[in-house]
Design a protein around this nucleic acid. Structure first.
Lengths: 231, 231
DNA sequence: TTCATAGTTCGATTGTAATCGAAGCATATG
DNA sequence: CATATGCTTCGATTACAATCGAACTATGAA
């Protein structure tokens, strides 16, 4: 009856609306203060403080003290992954109270998922990498091929700096809107940062939406053209 | 503030201990009746009935009526996937109240995850398939290569019958104990069934544990020998 | 028909967790 | 130092959901 880890404990942490709102807010990857999170969830600071304590205690969040501020962020990629797949369930399983407004459409097109690109644009990029054999999927995970490394460097990313880091270079992350994998890991994050540097995209403040500039969209489509389009 | 699907609703469904117990019980893939599930969770039938109604209403369970029995099972692979990854979080994030007893060790070695093989043996099998290039990972998902198909047929599986089905042949599923992917989908299920047919393994009743026979373990290791062992 | 088993619905109780006001620390700034 | 800001702790309130006993419905067996 009591096989395995205590799943109810973690799920109940996510199961409170206020806490769920804070967690989704943190899916942008940006670290937020307690006050910001309380506003995000629509509750007072006192209540938020108690919630945040529970979340950190449960290992879902990490916090960094900076002066008199406390910055909270998701503990790791796994947390973000669970949140995204929960969204997949919630979207798929009947109860989709997601009225598909214009905002929602933008969200499906491109959004940030723990600092990497998600949505249909994220899928397109992943597809391109896969089609060009820039990625090799082994049982241990995804690795970047030599051709892939060349491409990434050419795109203006300091690959060596990334590889020095302890965190995994490539990971895949399941997209709730597309139900496919997109590229996560430090490379995924670096790619999004680069897209911002190039001014192909910009983030909408206080939202997970990523907006493409007109030129940016054209460049993106040209760079990450899907092979299937030519077939 | 209200981006995306209602994640808190789903999470709160899983977040109740009684419901979580029922869900994990269903991770074996076997359909269970309301009475069995109530015993599994240690609650009365009345309470269980209300819980089961909520779970089906939330799209996590499907039910099949057979005479005066109601058989419940997980709605789909996604549900099983979310449960497993929640276990990963719960196991990893500090609060591992999983005292590693002998039972737990068996669970890590081989267990059933929604009717397919999980645990280190599941990983070993997946690794073998990957190393032998029996699987090809594309962005849309995993596909079986021709060599893979030959191997699978030789192993005694009616591949054509599986392919006729609507459900996906190959999927990957993240293992909470190993933090790696193992093979899910209808092929994954068929492989486990075949292992049982061959009497290499047997399921422990009322548990997720899969036990290897002595000969079965030897045959398994010989068949799915990891390339890295020879390196 | 009568009895037994499987499951649901109703009502009342109980416990717990979310919430916020008020007061208390802690860290910055003038 | 005083004062503002960010956050935590305490206490009381409130609301909701889990629980079970009892009565009810449905299916199957004798």
């Amino acid at each position: 009856m009591k096989d395995g880890p205590d799943i109810a404990y973690i799920a109940s942490l996510i199961g409170d609306p206020a806490r769920a709102n804070m967690l989704t807010a943190l899916l942008t990857g940006k670290a937020l203060t307690a006050t910001e999170l309380s506003q995000e969830a629509g509750i007072t600071l006192q209540t938020a403080s108690s919630h945040l304590a529970k979340l950190t205690d449960g290992g879902l969040l990490t916090l960094r003290k900076q002066g008199r501020h406390k910055y909270f962020s998701l503990a790791n990629d796994n947390v973000a992954g669970v949140l995204e797949s929960l969204m997949g369930l919630a979207a798929g399983s009947g109860h989709l109270r997601t009225r598909t407004g214009p905002r929602d459409a933008k969200l499906r097109h491109a959004r940030v998922c723990y600092n990497h690109l998600a949505g249909s644009m994220g899928i397109q990029m992943f597809n391109y990498f896969a089609d060009q054999h820039f990625l090799q999927i082994k049982s241990e995970g995804i690795t970047l091929t030599d051709n892939g490394a060349t491409f990434v460097r050419g795109f203006g990313i300091d690959l060596e700096a990334l590889q020095k880091k302890r965190s995994p270079l490539c990971k895949e992350c399941l997209d709730w809107s597309e139900r496919r994998s997109h590229l996560a890991g430090s490379l995924g994050r670096a790619l999004l940062t680069r897209l911002e540097e190039l001014k192909w995209v910009r983030r909408i403040p206080d939202s997970r939406i990523i907006e493409f500039t007109k030129a940016g969209q054209q460049n993106f489509d040209a760079t990450f053209a899907q092979a299937s389009l030519f077939a």
